[in-house]
């Protein structure tokens, strides 16, 4: 589960000489929010986002219609893109969670992914959400249970043992420490094989664990 497996390869890219209005158009038509700006050989020069194309009304306030239209038609991607040290990129070989951390820390929605120094792909918050959904088993039918268990070694083995003994399978899931309840751990599992009642009945047998949600 590395960035290179989840990024969008061959993203739509534009050149720095592109008109800002054209960039705006490409984003709207293709329903995307980020455009890497590249030079010859797909070398990354900058990044255009929807916000970057935003022209503050105060800039236009004192202008008449003709001046506005000239101002807009003279706008090039080159002058509006994120560049230099503001441009944060990643390599394809890092984990998806590390990429998520970078995006959170920098408060950005996308990371251009460089491969051998040129743009190999792009990973965005949408990719992350898709990944989350997949990770939790959103694409498979099954029973989703949340189990609260003591944060101790051997607790999740109990759960998997029960599931295995019934011949069911785990198709997605995850876990983190229980909110507002120190010493406990919440695990979410997407289980396929049994129906809701069967799964609950089986998992309820485990001592010290509690099913806090099932759907």
């Amino acid at each position: 589960m590395l960035v290179k497996d989840y990024m969008t390869r061959h993203p739509i890219m534009i050149s720095p000489e592109t008109d800002a209005s054209e960039a705006q158009n490409i984003m709207t038509e293709n329903n995307i929010r980020h455009l890497p700006v590249v030079g010859d050989g797909k070398r990354l020069l900058g990044l255009i986002t929807r916000e970057k194309l935003h022209v503050p009304p105060s800039d236009l306030g004192s202008l008449n219609v003709w001046e506005i239209s000239r101002l807009l038609s003279d706008l090039k991607v080159k002058g509006m893109m994120v560049k230099g040290k503001d441009l944060i990129t990643t390599e394809g070989d890092i984990t998806i969670e590390d990429a998520a951390k970078i995006m959170l820390e920098e408060k950005i929605g996308c990371l251009p992914v460089l491969e051998d120094g040129v743009v190999g792909g792009i990973i965005t918050d949408t990719d992350m959400l898709a990944h989350l959904a997949h990770l939790m088993g959103a694409t498979v039918q099954g029973v989703r249970v949340t189990i609260r268990m003591p944060d101790k070694v051997g607790e999740s083995a109990k759960v998997t043992d029960v599931i295995a003994s019934h011949g069911w399978g785990i198709y997605g899931g995850g876990g983190h420490d229980a909110p507002k309840q120190p010493g406990y751990w919440d695990a979410v599992l997407k289980i396929q094989g049994g129906d809701k009642e069967e799964v609950v009945a089986a998992l309820e047998q485990i001592e010290g664990q509690e099913i806090i949600d099932v759907r």
Binding site: T8, I32, A130, A133, T139
Partner: peptide, 11 residues
């Protein structure tokens, strides 16, 4: 695998 996300066609 990324079937939840729909990327625009290349051509």
């Amino acid at each position: 695998m990324n079937n939840l996300k729909k990327a625009p066609p290349v051509l």
